[in-house]
C-alpha cells in the first residue's frame, strides 16, 4: 500500500535529490530458467571457452543507433504507436548460458511523424517489434526483427542497420486478415493422475476428455521422493493424428510448417543436475483436425500434479498465430 505515498515520495525525491536511480526492465530469473532448461546457447562460432566472457563483454559494448519509421497500409505515418525494443546489453552474472542478459526499453512510441529512434545505447543486438493484436508487420509477416550491431555478427543481419535518420527501418503495418485471427486457449489446470492417460481437448477447460476426442494425450509418472525431497518424474505428451514441437520461445507470428513430433517426453531424474518439479513448455501443436496452436504447458508435479494450458489456436487451419 505505497501507491499514494509513492507519488508523494516522488515529488519529494525530485525536490531532494536528482541522483535517484530508477530500475531497469531486465530479464528475469524465470526467463533465464526457461532458456536454461531448454539448453539454448547462442552460436559462438570460433570462440573458445577461455575467451568467451571477454567476447560477450566486447559485444555488449557496441554502440547502437537505430532509426525507425512506422507506416500504415497506405504508407501514412502512424503516430504514437507503441514499439517494443529489447536490447541485449548485459552479461549474465554468474556467467553461464545463455551468457547475454537483456533489457526491455520502457515507453517507446512513435512521434507524430511515425518515427522513433534509439541513440546513446550500447549492446550486441536489438529486437524490434511493432505489431499488435490488430495489426502486423506485412513486410515480415512475423512478430519481430533482429538487428545485430556487434562486428562479429554483422553478416547475420537480414536488414541494413538503420543508423542514418534519412534511411530508417520502415515497418509497414496492415490490418490482420481473418485467417490470422486466433482464439484463446485457456484451460486452467488439469490434474494429472499417476500412471494413467489424460486426454486434453483445447476447448475443454479444467478436466480431461475421452481419448477419442483429445488433442493431446498425457501420461504422467512419478517415483517416490528421496531424502532430499527430489523425485524422478516423466510426462509423455502424444498428439493423436497431429504433432507437437517444443520451442525456445513463442515470439513468432507463425507456427512452423515442419518439424512436428508425434510424441514429446519431458521430465527429470531425481539425480539430474538442475532438477526441477516445475517445467514450462512453450510449444506449437498441430491438432488432428489440422489446426495450429501455440501453447504454454505449465507442468507442476508436487502433491497434486497438474498441467495448466494456455495459448492461442488458429481455427482456420492457417499457421498464423498473432
Amino acid at each position: 500500500m505505497m501507491h499514494r505515498s509513492g507519488i508523494t515520495a516522488l515529488i519529494l525525491s525530485v525536490a531532494l535529490t536528482a541522483c535517484v536511480t530508477t530500475p531497469e526492465d531486465t530479464y528475469s530469473t524465470a526467463d533465464l530458467a526457461l532458456l536454461q532448461e531448454r539448453g539454448w546457447e547462442p552460436n559462438f562460432d570460433g570462440i573458445t571457452p577461455a575467451n568467451l566472457e571477454a567476447h560477450v563483454r566486447a559485444e555488449i559494448a557496441t554502440p547502437i543507433v537505430f532509426h525507425g519509421l512506422v507506416l500504415d497500409e497506405s504508407s501514412n505515418p502512424i503516430p504514437d504507436h507503441p514499439v517494443s525494443i529489447v536490447v541485449f546489453d548485459r552479461v549474465l552474472s554468474p556467467f553461464q548460458s545463455p551468457f547475454f542478459g537483456w533489457t526491455t526499453l520502457q515507453g517507446i512510441r512513435t512521434d507524430r511523424d511515425g518515427r522513433f529512434s534509439l541513440t546513446d545505447l550500447r549492446g550486441a543486438a536489438v529486437v524490434v517489434s511493432v505489431g499488435d493484436r490488430d495489426y502486423w508487420d506485412i513486410d515480415e509477416g512475423r512478430a519481430q526483427r533482429v538487428y545485430h550491431y556487434s562486428t562479429w555478427r554483422l553478416a547475420e543481419n537480414e536488414h541494413m542497420l538503420p543508423v542514418d535518420p534519412q534511411s530508417p527501418a520502415v515497418f509497414h503495418l496492415d490490418r490482420k486478415p481473418e485467417r490470422a485471427r486466433t482464439t484463446l486457449v485457456r484451460l486452467g489446470s488439469i490434474t494429472l493422475p499417476l500412471d494413467a492417460q489424460t486426454g486434453i481437448a483445447l476447448n475443454r477447460p479444467r478436466y480431461p476428455v475421452e481419448p477419442g476426442v483429445a488433442d493431446l494425450l498425457l501420461h504422467f509418472t512419478r517415483e517416490p521422493a528421496n531424502v532430499d525431497g527430489r523425485f524422478s518424474w516423466r510426462l509423455r505428451i502424444t498428439t493423436p493424428d497431429g504433432g507437437i514441437q517444443r520451442v525456445q520461445t513463442l515470439f513468432t507470428d507463425q507456427a512452423p510448417a515442419e518439424g512436428y513430433l508425434q510424441q514429446l517426453d519431458i521430465g527429470y531424474e531425481a539425480s539430474a543436475q538442475g532438477w526441477n518439479h516445475r517445467v514450462d513448455i512453450p510449444c506449437f501443436v498441430l491438432t488432428g483436425e489440422g489446426h495450429y496452436a501455440s501453447l504454454v504447458l505449465r507442468v507442476r508435479t508436487l502433491e497434486t500434479p497438474f498441467v495448466a494450458v494456455s495459448g492461442k489456436l488458429n481455427p482456420h487451419g492457417e499457421r498464423y498465430l498473432d
Binding site: 486457449v185 485457456r186 484451460l187 489446470s189 490434474t191 504454454v296 505449465r298 495448466a308 494456455s310 495459448g311
Partner: peptide, 10 residues
C-alpha cells in the same frame, strides 16, 4: 503449485 481455473496466464 495449487491448481487454478481458466483465464490462465494468457
Amino acid at each position: 503449485n495449487i491448481p487454478y481455473n481458466d483465464a490462465g496466464l494468457s
